[in-house]
Design a protein around this nucleic acid. Sequence first.
DNA 1: TAATTTGGTTTATACTGTAAACCAGTTTAT
DNA 2: ATAAACTGGTTTACAGTATAAACCAAATTA
Lengths: 94, 94
Amino acid sequence: MFKDLDPLLHSQLRLAIMSLLLTVDSAEFTYIKEKTNSTAGNLSIQLDKLSDAGYLKVTKSFKGKKPVTTCSITKAGIKAFEDYVNALKAYIQP
Amino acid sequence: MFKDLDPLLHSQLRLAIMSLLLTVDSAEFTYIKEKTNSTAGNLSIQLDKLSDAGYLKVTKSFKGKKPVTTCSITKAGIKAFEDYVNALKAYIQP
DNA sequence: TAATTTGGTTTATACTGTAAACCAGTTTAT
DNA sequence: ATAAACTGGTTTACAGTATAAACCAAATTA
């Protein structure tokens, strides 16, 4: 009746990150931080978790002299998100 | 962009409990336990939290000689659930 | 009457989420 | 030139959450 919800996605911030990355090719750390209203520390950790799970790819580079962290969702991430939403529907539909 | 999700509802078990109680007048502890596939201990605690928040009403009685715990959702619980679902939609819609 | 079952609650522990502190480097002001 | 403040994060420490395991009282069954 109620399927398990992927615990990695069932978190407000991580879900927001994934939701955001679904709509764009890639996004920078600071952009995600702003859009999700998160602190840098929290975002850093949650990005690591999503990255460790293979749900997104994180690349580090420099823009001029400044370090930039860029994130993009992976195939596995899209799949996991879709599965999560499908499972969730059973909970929130009347 | 991403509204906060009621942390009380953003929990797999508590959400399942609320979802279940929305569809029925009331339900007994053992029924909820079975339908949500939860352990008694976990269920007991999560029911307390929802009850403390005023999202549901828990009444204790006896069926014959056996104790029965009966739960039903409150107006406040229905409202909270609806708000949660509306907020959640922003996260899961493409 | 001893063991098992029912219907839970309480306790202990592992896991999560978060803010605060921190770090390396850059820019700005003096 | 150097101190102060800012950028772009990471690490650490702690509070809160979820869960299983242990427990309890009463009823049922062997």
